[in-house]
Design a protein around this nucleic acid. Structure first.
Length: 269
DNA sequence: ATGATACCATAGGCTTCGGA
DNA sequence: TCCGAAGCCTATGGTATCAT
């Protein structure tokens, strides 16, 4: 998912949609408010849990995705606010201060529930605001967030995390031809043992579990949104055998690909 | 603390076949 | 076209040890 941005604030207002696990990144800042969902947010190599309301600010170029958990796998509302990374870089001191604060964010910030509630109405108002008012509202929101650093969670941006994030992005871009652990390790110049340790310590799962989750989420997305035969979906998710894909899918979701497609067929309309 | 190497048991990936 | 079962093979996870 990529957004072409000119020098303006872009707002996406998404109501009652299933949260899809899809790694992506933007060449701009993103503030995302999620209401009425429960699950985990993945920003770079950091994972945070959320329930009911979640507010996160993501720096440009940082891969991220969200993963909801049943029965809250559809968010009531998601407000995505995107703006160019140098939008506030100007001679006006107040804006320049905000820009330098944004520039200091290495990876991202996850805000507390209180902070999210505090700026909730302003975020909602962005949807109907005029372009000029959007800019004003965004500045007000950022000014509020900036004075709440203690409530935010500073995300780790160590050398290891940066390399792990690179691998995550790489794997996500090759779901149809999944790289092996050894290939991933070679991609970032570490040993397989080290990469295994990073996955266990920083993501809380093994390499194969992570890849399996990614493939399963991609399969769910394709089954719910496209009409291609299951064998084709299997190929797009890196399975050479449709029979094995069916077995794998049922083991991870509790239902066969066909049953899943029938249940979520409304998404194709 | 971080990273590399080596070893072994096994879970996962795949193929084949048959049935609905 | 889709799904399930059985069996085989290999990559992976877990662990210990050592080096930097």
């Amino acid at each position: 998912m990529r957004f072409a941005l000119n020098q303006s604030v872009q707002v996406k207002y998404i109501e009652k949609q299933k949260v899809l696990f899809e790694w992506h990144q933007h060449d701009c800042f993103e503030l995302i408010l999620t209401i009425g969902a429960q699950g985990r947010g993945f920003i770079g190599s950091t994972i945070h849990a959320f329930a009911d309301i979640d507010l996160a600010l993501i720096a440009p170029g940082v891969p991220h995705t969200w993963d909801s958990q049943p029965p809250y796998d559809s968010a009531e509302l998601v407000v995505v606010i995107l703006w160019p990374k140098t939008l506030l870089a100007c001679a006006i001191a107040e804006l320049a201060d905000l820009q330098s604060w944004l520039d200091s964010i290495a990876s991202g910030l996850v805000f507390s529930r209180d902070t999210a509630e505090q700026v909730r109405e302003q975020c909602l108002a962005l949807n109907t605001a005029s372009p000029l008012n959007r800019l004003t509202l965004l500045c007000e929101i950022l000014a509020e967030l900036r004075v709440r650093p203690a409530k935010g969670i500073r995300l780790d941006h160590s050398r290891n995390s940066e390399r792990l994030a690179r691998v995550q992005t790489w794997i996500a871009s090759r779901v149809d031809t999944p790289p092996s652990l050894a290939q991933c390790a070679a991609h970032i110049n570490v040993s397989t043992a080290t990469l295994k340790r990073w996955f266990a310590h920083e993501l809380g799962c093994s390499f194969s579990q992570y890849c399996a989750q990614l493939r399963c989420q991609r399969a769910q997305h394709l089954l719910a949104t496209e009409r291609r035969p299951i064998g084709v979906v299997a190929q797009q998710c890196g399975f050479t055998s449709a029979a094995y894909f069916s077995q794998f899918f049922k083991a991870h979701t509790g239902m066969t690909p066909g049953a899943y497609r029938r249940q979520f067929s409304w998404r194709k309309r």
